[in-house]
């Protein structure tokens, strides 16, 4: 059963976990995605961009 591998990592048959912080009520899954987006955004503006070949003019 190939589906057993991902199913063993994340149990989707249970209610999700939530973070409650004042009026903020967010699922851990959504919070993780937002944190990854912020991380990728920071990396995108800080990491150097590889320079390709020079254009011949």
């Amino acid at each position: 059963m190939p589906n057993l591998v991902p199913a063993s990592l994340i149990d989707l048959s249970r209610p999700g976990h939530y973070v409650h912080w004042g009026f903020i009520d967010i699922s851990v899954a959504n919070l993780v995605v937002i944190c990854v987006m912020v991380l990728v955004f920071v990396l995108a503006i800080t990491l150097p961009f590889p320079h390709g070949r020079k254009a011949k003019r």
């Binding site: 990396l43 990491l47 961009f49 254009a55």
Partner: peptide, 14 residues
Amino acid sequence: DTQPAYVASWIYVF
């Protein structure tokens, strides 16, 4: 076929 030099940043890839 070319872009301005400032486009050489990862943020412009998205």
